[in-house]
């Protein structure tokens, strides 16, 4: 028996909106720790790792570890039917091939349930080693989204270079080139508006903008984004989900042959 009640149901709606275009089908794993997912895109270039900790749910019952295969497009369709203020409860019986999403309005005057068929998915779980990153960049998530969107109108790839002076995002395309430099800036009114570069060892990596743009669909989940970079290994783009966990995107770099 599985029963997860999330008072802030909009979080789950936002999570699905942020990953449904990157990954088609995925297994959601439920354990005492929480509700999690790890899935790669079909080309094995990007990976999403989600964790919603059990403590973040108002009610969390998971009698045994279970893995539920879902089509994320279909799940997103169902969650779109929940209001932004609705409480969302996920329910599944042992051995059942369906999951039920229950939506309750905040005033309890409307209750809806949507049942979705589960799927068998061959999961390709990757072991992600602990890495020491050369540079960790924390910046407003909306600013990062803006930069990725702007640069993708000029070129297909971005070079992200971190130096002591700041971080530079560069692209080139048929019509020209573009460079955006963000300097460390901690003298702001609100901490979430700061740009912070931790451990600023020089690092320069190239990535496909198409994927970074896809990751920025998670912007509504967090005011800030943390980007961890090291030479010649995948970048981690992390959006923290307040009180609950995180959504992390990994992207393999483009490397000169």
């Amino acid at each position: 028996m599985l029963e997860l009640r999330l008072v802030q149901g909009s979080l789950l709606k936002k999570v699905l909106e942020s990953i449904k275009d990157l990954v088609n089908d995925a297994n959601f794993d439920c354990s005492a720790t929480g509700f999690s997912l790890q899935a790669m895109d079909s080309s094995h270039v990007a990976l999403v790792a989600l964790l919603l900790r059990s403590e973040g749910f108002e009610h969390y019952r998971c009698d045994r570890n279970i893995s539920m295969g879902m089509n994320l497009g279909n799940m997103a369709k169902m969650l779109k039917c929940a209001g932004n203020d609705d409480i969302i409860t996920l329910k599944a019986d042992d051995g059942s091939d369906t999951v039920t999403f229950m939506f309750e309005s905040p005033t309890q005057d409307k209750i809806a349930d949507f049942e979705m068929r589960l799927m068998d998915i061959d999961s390709e779980h990757l072991g992600i080693p602990e890495a020491e990153y050369h540079a960790i960049l924390i910046m407003p998530s909306a600013e990062f989204a803006r930069i990725c969107k702007d640069l993708s109108s000029i070129g297909d790839t971005v070079v992200i270079s971190v130096t002591k002076e700041g971080v530079k995002f560069s692209t080139r395309g048929d019509i020209g080139t573009a460079n955006v430099v963000c300097r460390q800036n901690t003298t702001v009114d609100k901490p979430e508006e700061a740009t912070v570069i931790e451990m600023p060892e020089p690092v320069s990596l190239t990535f496909a903008l198409r994927y970074l743009n896809s990751f920025t669909k998670a912007t509504p989940l967090s005011n800030t984004v943390t980007i961890s970079l090291s030479s010649e290994i995948p970048v981690v783009v992390e959006y923290k989900i307040a009180e609950m966990g995180y959504i992390r995107f990994y992207l393999a770099p483009k490397i000169e042959e």
Partner: peptide
């Protein structure tokens, strides 16, 4: 020539 790598080159399949 710049080539797109895959995650499976960096992470082990479990």
């Amino acid at each position: 020539l710049i080539k797109q790598t895959m995650l499976t080159q960096f992470f082990e399949m479990n």
